[in-house]
Computed example of a mutant assay.
Amino acid sequence: MFDSVYSVAAGLTELERKDLLSWHNISCKNELPWRDGLSLYNYINSASMNGLTGRVHFAEGRRNLFQIDLLKLKREKIQKVGFWKPEFGVNITDSTAFYDTYSSNTTLIVMTRQEKPYVMVKSGISQTGNDRFEGFCIDLLKAIATQMGFQYKIELVPDNMYGVFNPDTKVWNGIVRELMEKLTRTKI
């Protein structure tokens, strides 16, 4: 999150340095884009800086050349057990990190929503089942399933929401609702 805000700040700084930044009132109700929005996007896209997660680079509006460390709480301390890079996928450096006493004949239903770069539906490819998904969480799920020996089925939540409680209807939506409904059906 810090590196994201830092990138926007670097873009705004460069935009202001070039005397291109103009301030005026905008409205969420007005559908016209901010006049300087494309310039800001281009400055952020061309930014290159050192952030908390290493060197920050962008290509076509997406961060590249980065890695996400996989951490696990082990005996009351957090240890790095691997990493993920968009171009290589998951690399688990601690082969015992995800072993536990699970049944090898288990198929898990993984309820999720689309969220770049974590869970994405492959574009332009007519895949079915789990093969139609890609991203950090998908690569991590594949690696853990391979090590643990379980099967899984990925399902997208119909409303593409994580889950928000509606105080008027007293009902959850999104993934939370799907999990609650599946738990209720399981108990019956």
Rank of each mutant, 00 (worst) to 15 (best):
D159M: 08
V176L: 06
M161S: 07
N173I: 00
Q151I: 01
D168Y: 07
V164C: 02
D168R: 11
L179R: 10
V171N: 13
M180E: 08
Q151N: 10
K153H: 08
Y162G: 08
M161G: 01
T169S: 13
Y162A: 08
K170V: 00
Q151K: 15
V157K: 01
D159V: 05
I144E: 05
G174I: 01
V164L: 06
N160M: 15
E155R: 13
G174D: 06
T184E: 15
G163V: 07
K170T: 03
G174A: 02
I144V: 14
V171A: 12
P167L: 14
Q147I: 13
Q151R: 15
N166D: 15
L156C: 01
V171I: 15
P158S: 07
N160Y: 08
Y162H: 09
L156E: 00
W172N: 03
A145N: 07
K187M: 14
V157P: 01
V176A: 09
E155L: 12
E178H: 11
M161Q: 10
P167R: 12
I188C: 11
T169P: 04
R185F: 11
D168C: 00
M161P: 00
M180G: 02
L141R: 03
I154K: 07
L179C: 04
A145K: 08
M180W: 06
A143R: 12
T184C: 11
N160Q: 15
F150W: 10
N173G: 02
K153P: 00
Y152N: 05
D168G: 04
N173Q: 01
I188H: 14
I144G: 03
M180I: 09
E178K: 04
K187E: 13
Y152K: 07
E178W: 10
R177C: 03
R185D: 11
N160R: 11
E181C: 02
A145L: 10
A143Q: 14
G163I: 07
I175Q: 10
F165A: 05
Y152W: 11
Q147V: 04
D159N: 14
M180P: 00
T169N: 03
G163H: 06
E181K: 03
K182M: 14
M148H: 04
T146P: 00
I154A: 11
Y162I: 06
F165K: 03
R177N: 01
N160T: 04
F150V: 00
F165L: 12
P167Q: 15
K182E: 14
F150R: 07
V171F: 13
K142F: 07
K182V: 06
L156D: 00
I188D: 08
T169Q: 07
I188A: 09
E181S: 03
I154L: 12
P167A: 10
T184Y: 13
I144Y: 11
E178S: 09
I154H: 10
V157N: 01
R185N: 09
E155H: 07
I154R: 04
K170F: 06
K153R: 13
R177K: 11
K187I: 14
P158D: 07
V171C: 09
A143N: 05
D159A: 01
Y152C: 08
L156W: 00
Y152R: 06
R177H: 11
N173E: 03
